[in-house]
């Protein structure tokens, strides 16, 4: 794949194993571009979410999981950094919307700052809340309910709140793990439109089972199979003329 100059993250021989000698992700090497949406596709169990969580250092939570290789985010080796610092740089959104149930909408947006012990003045806090909720298209819907819990929001609105929470910290990269698989088509469409807007500000990596979604919104696509990166290319090229036979078989529905 032709690489432009705006590389934001480099993966080099990245491997993740849950058990000694058995790899969920194996020797993945790729350069990811800034202000781009990269979709990671593949059949169930191919290592997509494992790869994503490795970037965010989520695997730290489990002692049996081993991550080797390099993840360089803006020339910082993520695997050697403080995990909390990594999670500020790489915001994550999960499949099921998960606004913190005990926090208000405003507090949910500011959760990242609170958990990192970052104090903001009242005016700064208000600005961050307004900007983040505006960026995700929620401000007009919730501006009069900022002190209410997020649970009254619809699924799509809750997911947008989670994205607002992630972008409030101004991350370098946004990681989304099947962010719309629990949402209805209209909510999905809104999230997709939102991501197309947000890519003007952030690099975005999205794991998706929905090939049409990957085709609709991503600039680049990765196809993974059995933990390996099989193909990584411009989405349009991959979806019309993939280079690898396995990718062709997956895209035409012949396996997976």
């Amino acid at each position: 794949m032709e690489i432009k100059n705006n590389i934001i993250m480099s993966l080099k021989d990245l491997s993740v194993s849950y058990t000694e000698g058995i790899y969920a992700v194996k020797d993945v090497t790729a350069d990811l571009l800034d202000k781009n949406i990269t979709a990671i596709m593949g059949p169930s169990g191919c290592g997509k979410s494992t790869l994503l969580r490795a970037i965010n250092r989520m695997h730290e939570l489990y002692s049996n999981i081993k991550v080797t290789g390099e993840i360089n985010l803006k020339n910082n080796n993520v695997l050697k950094m403080n995990p909390m610092s990594v999670r500020k740089m790489a915001g994550m959104v999960f499949q099921r919307p998960n606004p913190f149930p005990t926090m208000s909408i405003a507090d949910n947006v500011m959760a990242g700052y609170k958990l990192n012990g970052i104090r903001k003045s009242k005016s700064e806090r208000e600005e961050i809340i307004k900007n983040s909720l505006t960026d995700v298209g929620l401000w007009n819907e919730v501006k009069d309910s900022l002190n209410k819990k997020g649970s009254f929001l619809s699924g799509g609105q809750q997911q947008r709140l989670c994205i607002a929470r992630a972008i409030a910290l101004k991350p370098e990269i946004l990681l989304l793990d099947e962010p719309t698989s629990a949402l209805d088509p209209i909510a999905t469409s809104k999230i997709e439109d939102l991501l197309l807007e947000l890519k003007k500000q952030f690099a975005i990596i999205i794991v998706t089972h929905n090939m049409s979604q990957a085709a609709r919104i991503s600039d680049s696509s990765m196809f993974m199979y059995l933990g390996e990166l099989i193909e990584y290319d411009n989405t349009k090229k991959m979806f019309t003329n993939p280079s690898n036979k396995k990718t062709e078989e997956y895209l035409t529905g012949n396996f997976g």
């Binding site: 090939m211 003329n241 990718t247 035409t252």
Partner: peptide, 9 residues
Amino acid sequence: YSPRASDLR
């Protein structure tokens, strides 16, 4: 069917 790859071509 939203054809892709060789199906699309």
